[in-house]
């Protein structure tokens, strides 16, 4: 079990933006800058569950016009960390 956040990896601006969206959409008590960009969002890492995933997907679609589809085989990778999620959004964003 982790204890203190030691020196967190600095987030890139795009990651910071998505991290803020995650925190506000899911009402997390975590600060956006404290989300480790390379660690899993779901399960062991940030501890999000599949209901969070849905809420996050709805928020992402509203904010960026990026539709996350269940039949996308890359979902596992897209959702695997803040970094991969941000990369996916930046590649597909409509606004």
């Amino acid at each position: 079990m982790s204890t203190d956040i030691e020196t967190p990896t600095a987030l890139l601006p795009g990651e910071m933006e998505v991290a803020s969206l995650i925190v506000s959409a899911l009402s997390l008590e975590t600060r956006p800058e404290d989300i480790p960009p390379d660690e899993p969002l779901f399960g062991a890492g940030l501890g999000l569950d599949s209901i969070d995933a849905l809420e996050l997907a709805l928020a992402i679609s509203k904010a960026y016009g990026v539709q996350l589809r269940s039949d996308d085989e890359r979902n596992h990778r897209i959702f695997s960390s803040l970094r991969t999620l941000t990369a996916h959004i930046e590649k597909h964003r409509a606004r």
Partner: peptide
């Protein structure tokens, strides 16, 4: 909503680490 960092599995019994 328990604080998500540090992750504390089973801290409250209500939301432990879950998805996969």
């Amino acid at each position: 909503r328990p604080s998500h960092l540090p992750a504390s599995p089973a801290a409250t019994g209500q939301r432990s680490a879950t998805a996969d």
